[in-house]
Design a binder for these strands. Structure first.
Length: 552
RNA sequence: GCGCCCAUAGUUUAAUGGAUAAAACUUUGGAUUGCGGAUCCAAGAAUAAAGGUUCGAUUCCUUUUGGGCGCACCA
């Protein structure tokens, strides 16, 4: 529809012999003004002439019910109700039509997200990227891209040495052992490693040499430590796998630092003198030459840093899935870091130019203090889910619905805000089910389904003619629903799941207003509208990775 | 010190350069012999400050103030 309007305006501008201008067509803020609005009249200073001409355009006349000039010279266009009904049916029938040109003209997209390091606990910062990454993967898929879900986990390096060192201290103090710890539950094991990591950090200065030596040993697969390393690594991975399942994510491939450390280091050394250079015994990338900053890629000890590992990661990822674009969903504190490694990668291999992209996620802060896994100032994900579940327990009818509402509440609280925005995490808000929340949307869906069931039309409702008596709130809802498709396209282009969250919230609000005002059962048009609303809410929630139970 | 990001009701968040800046939480007052009251309706309250760009600025540019993050052997 937008294309038809744009084409009509273009034609009119040519007919009037006006210079081609960059006009825009959008949805006006206030729905009572119309479905579409253009500023073409303002820019050309001839709103009335353009408006009059538009009225005579046959393609436009076929779909428009009203065209007039308003406000500062905007031309508002209302669409005929039957056309809107057809549009909604189209969206429901075909699902989201394919993005015309794909994401930035590219089709194969790797989404790399979550990145929890082993030997630590998973906190709400990881959770945010996990939730956003999964939503993006679904949205891009819906928009026509071929998506590959990747995860990259730091299973080797100083943090692992610290954690193992600290955990061993704790086990000794508590007169326990690695064997005994094996009997603990998954969550307890993860928590133990988390405590060990905090301990390792606390004692690092005093025991630096010991821990550094342990780190080197782990890299070297030293016999004395290898079995403990394998054992604890598995604890972490199993623990994370339980979250992936709970959050509805299935990775196509897990990548590990331990598998790219060697190749990465080799690649850096091979390009010593061209891309990299020696400095104080370490190998660095002279970022200043490119307006960036210098970073160490291989340490004096000969260990590859995070940077060098990325030099091994990208080629491996490309080999596994030759992506047009790889989106790294990572917190914005690493923006400077990514600028450096992307530049270095592009210098190593031209094919990476323009393919690597850092989606800079905002930080999650606790009210009042910063999250730090080093000091243990964190909210763990299982702790959070536990709390939310407890709060919702009395309201859900069965375990299945309870789990859906719990995860839905948490996911939605993350997805409703722009992902580049820093957010203040408030557990009370997340636990809440009122207002702009996941349970509100799920409740609205279940209620709509319930009405359809009562009416005996639980399946598909036949679209039928409307009359004025269906009420203005019904029309308002209709004028919103058909926009779903373009919202999905925009969300994919801008990598912004929050656009979908905002949209379905708007739909739910309008539906609830309509519901409260009118009796639905007994009116075919209202029933059709209810079915359409339910369908779109469900589809929208699904794109966000949120389940919509039929009953709750 | 250098660089990047951010600043909107009491709080947490919306708003491709457009019309009367939108919600939620909180507060106060209302709505059910009607299909799920986890709902709905109503009231109050905001663009950090000063310039600039233009038909038009919360949005773009400059400065100031106040926050966050990064800047060599961590990830």
């Amino acid at each position: 529809m937008k294309q038809i309007i744009e084409a009509a305006i273009k034609k009119v501008l040519i007919d009037l012999k006006l210079k081609p201008v960059n006009f825009s067509v959008e949805h006006p803020e206030n729905m009572s003004w119309g479905d579409f609005s253009t500023n073409a009249g303002i820019i050309t200073h001839q709103p009335q002439e353009i408006c009059d001409r538009l009225k005579t355009e046959p393609t436009l006349a076929k779909i428009a019910s009203k065209i007039d000039v308003a406000g500062a010279g905007f031309i508002n266009i209302s669409i005929q109700i039957p056309v809107l009904i057809t549009q909604v049916n189209q969206v429901l029938k075909d699902g989201v039509t394919r993005l015309r040109q794909g994401f930035g003209g590219r089709r194969k997209i790797m989404v790399e997200f979550a990145h929890p390091n082993t030997h630590k606990e998973m906190h709400i910062g990881h959770m945010r990227t996990l939730i956003v990454g999964e939503a993006l993967a679904r949205i891009l898929t819906a928009a026509g891209a071929q998506v590959f879900r990747a995860n990259y986990q730091g299973d080797i390096g100083p943090h692992v040495a610290k954690s193992i060192w600290g955990t061993e201290k704790i086990l000794t103090e508590e007169k326990s052992s690695w064997q005994q710890a094996e009997k603990l539950s998954l969550t307890e094991k993860a928590h133990l490693l988390g405590r060990g990591y905090v301990r390792g950090n606390q004692d690092y200065e005093a025991n630096k040499k010991e821990m550094d030596r342990l780190n080197v040993k782990i890299y070297a697969h030293d016999k004395n430590i290898e079995s403990v390393y394998r054992q604890t690594r598995k604890w972490s991975l199993d623990y994370y796998a339980s979250f992936y399942e709970r959050f509805g994510t299935k990775y196509d491939r897990l990548f590990f630092e331990s598998e790219v450390a060697g190749p990465g280091k080799q690649s850096v050394l091979n390009n010593l003198g061209q891309v990299f250079k020696k400095s104080d015994g370490a190998v660095v990338f002279p970022g200043e030459n490119y307006g960036l900053h210098t970073r160490v890629f291989v340490t004096q000890d000969g260990n590859p840093t995070y940077e060098a590992k990325d030099m091994g990661l990208a080629p491996l990822q490309f080999k596994v899935f030759p992506f047009d674009r790889c989106i790294h969903v990572v917190a914005n504190e690493q923006t400077g870091y990514f600028q450096v490694i992307i530049k270095a990668l592009e210098l190593l291999d031209k094919k990476f130019i323009g393919r690597e992209y850092h989606l800079s996620m905002g930080m999650v802060n606790l009210i009042g203090k910063k999250i730090s896994s080093r000091t243990g100032e964190i909210i763990t994900v299982d702790g959070l889910l536990e709390k939310v579940k407890e709060n919702l327990k009395s309201l859900a009818k069965n375990q299945e619905a309870l789990e859906a509402v719990t995860v839905g509440a948490v996911k939605y609280s993350v997805l409703k805000t722009g992902c580049q925005q820093d957010v203040a995490f408030d557990i009370k808000k997340t636990v809440s089910l009122d207002g702009n929340s996941g349970p509100y949307l799920q409740y609205t869906y279940a209620r709509a389904k319930s009405v359809l069931e009562k009416a005996g039309v639980s399946g598909k409702v036949r679209p039928c003619w409307y009359s004025d008596e269906v009420g203005p709130s019904a029309i308002l809802l209709l004028r919103t629903l058909y926009r779903f498709e373009e919202v999905v396209v925009q969300a994919a282009q801008e990598l912004a799941p929050n656009l979908i969250a905002n949209f379905i919230y708007d739909v739910a609000q309008k539906f609830n207003g309509f519901y409260n005002k009118h009796k639905i059962v007994g009116n075919d048009f209202r029933l059709w509208l209810t079915g359409a609303t339910a369908g779109i809410i469900k589809r929208g929630l699904n794109l966000l990775g949120i389940d919509a139970p039929e009953k709750m």
